[in-house]
Design a protein around this nucleic acid. Structure first.
Lengths: 219, 219
DNA sequence: TCCTATTTGATATAATTTTATCGATTGGAG
DNA sequence: CTCCAATCGATAAAATTATATCAAATAGGA
C-alpha cells in the first residue's frame, strides 16, 4: 500500500483480477488465492493489489471483495464513463456496437461513422453518420476515444481524421501500424501477436517454464 | 546474430516486423528504419532481428527484405501450417472461420464444432460438427490448436474437452480465465486489457513517456 | 487465554528487458 | 584511392519487473 505508480505489466493484470473478483461469491479474497488461481507469483499479486487497494487487506483474511472491486474500478477509471466513436461499421464494427460488455469497462460507444453511409441511420440504438460529420460531432461532444474497424487501406486516413478532431486514444482493430503523434495512444488489437505466440508454442522451440499462463495477448 | 533464445517480449514484436516487411517495396531495410517507424529503440530492433536472421545484415545496407521475411516466417513457424479447430460458431466463430488472413500466419481452421449443431453442416467451405464428434476427429487428425469462441459459461467445459482430445494450445476468445495443465498454452484475446490501458491513458494518470507505441494488447 | 497458521506489507535480491556505447565493416562520394 | 557516414554485431550499463524473505498482525482453534 505504498507504491502508487503502476507499471504497464501491472496495468495489464488488473483487469483480470477485476474480472475474477466480479465472478467471486466470497466475501474475502487473499492475494494468495488469486496467485494460485492465475498461477502468478504471490508477491506479485500482493504488490499489484497494494497499488489499487485504498484500505489494504487484513492479515489472515485478505481483501474485502466488494471493496477491492470498487478500488479496481476507480483505479482503472471504469467509473468515469468514456464516450467513444467507432469508424467502420462492417462485420466487426457492428459486432462491437452491439456488444454490451463495454459498459462494464467504462466505454460507451455513442456513435459510428462510415464512408459508405450517406444519410444518418441506426444500428441497434446507435446512430451512424457519414464521415463528413465526424470532426464536428467529436469536437462538440469532446470525445477522446476512437475505435478503428476499417480495413488496412483506410486505417491511417481515418486515424488522421480522428486526431484532427481531437481524439487522444485509439483502439485499432485494423491490421495496420498507425503513425501518431506522441500524445496519442494507440492500442492495437493484435491477433497476429497471439498467433505468433501460439505458433511458436506449437513448434515447441520456446521454453514456457516461467510463463504458465500468458495473461495478455498480448501481453 | 548470437543469442538464439527469444524472449516473450521479442516474440510479440516479431509479427509487427513481419507485417511491416511484407508491405515494404524496398530491397533492403535497416534496423534503424524499422526502429524509427515503430518508435522503438534501435538496438532493441537490431537484437530482435539478430535472433531470427540467418545471414545477418550488411553494414550500410541493412537486411535483405525478402530474406528477412522468410527468416521471420521460419522462426515463427508460419511455414509449417498448423491445423486448428474452432468451437462455437456464433457471430465471432463465423467471422473467424471466414477470415482469410490466418493463412498468412500458418493457421488453417479445418473444422468447427458447436453444441447447437446436430447434423454436419457447412459454413463457407468449412465443415461444422456436433460436439460429440470432436474428440475422435481431433485425435485422428492430430490437431493441436483449438480456438474457443463460446460464451463464458461453456468455456471451461469446452477447454477440458479440447485438452482431453489432445489439444496443446488454446486461443481463447471467451471472457473466461481458463484453468489448464502446465503443458497447455492459453492465449487470451484480451480486449479487457486493451481497454484498461486506454482507459488509464484517458484518465491521464499514467506516464507513457517511455511507451510511445504499445505494440501489443497487449504490448 | 495462548498458540499456530495464514496473510499482509516491506525490504532485499534476482532475473529479465531495454538502452547506451564502441569498434568493425562496407557502400558511395569526392 | 581515401575518407565519411551508416549500419552491423557485441559488450556493458541501466531500468524495469519478478521473486524471495521476514517481521507484524490477526483469526480461529486448543
Amino acid at each position: 500500500m505504498e507504491n502508487r505508480t503502476c507499471s504497464l505489466q501491472t496495468l495489464r493484470r488488473l483487469p483480470y483480477y477485476l474480472y475474477y473478483l466480479r465472478n467471486s461469491n466470497e466475501e474475502y479474497c487473499s492475494a494468495t488465492t488469486i496467485a494460485r488461481d492465475f498461477r502468478l507469483n504471490e508477491v506479485q499479486v500482493r504488490k499489484d493489489l497494494a497499488i489499487v487497494s485504498k484500505t489494504g487487506g487484513s492479515p489472515r483474511k485478505g481483501f474485502n471483495v466488494q471493496e477491492l472491486i470498487s478500488d479496481l474500478e476507480d483505479f482503472l477509471g471504469y467509473n468515469n464513463m468514456n464516450d467513444a466513436i467507432i469508424v467502420g461499421v462492417g462485420h466487426l464494427g457492428k459486432a462491437l456496437i452491439n456488444y454490451k460488455g463495454f459498459q462494464d469497462y467504462g466505454i460507451n460507444i455513442v456513435m459510428g461513422f462510415d464512408r459508405a453511409i450517406k444519410t444518418e441511420m441506426l444500428i441497434g440504438s446507435t446512430a451512424i453518420f457519414p464521415m463528413e460529420r465526424m470532426k464536428n460531432l467529436v469536437q462538440r461532444l469532446k470525445i477522446k476515444l476512437g475505435i478503428i474497424t476499417v480495413n488496412q487501406g483506410s486505417a491511417q486516413r481515418v486515424c488522421n481524421q480522428m486526431i484532427d478532431a481531437g481524439i487522444k486514444a485509439i483502439w485499432n482493430f485494423s491490421p495496420y501500424m498507425l503513425r501518431v503523434p506522441e500524445d496519442v495512444l494507440v492500442q492495437n488489437e493484435n491477433m497476429a501477436m497471439s498467433l505468433a505466440i501460439l505458433s511458436k508454442h506449437l513448434n515447441e522451440e520456446i521454453d514456457h517454464e516461467h510463463q504458465p499462463i500468458i495473461m495478455n495477448a498480448e501481453d
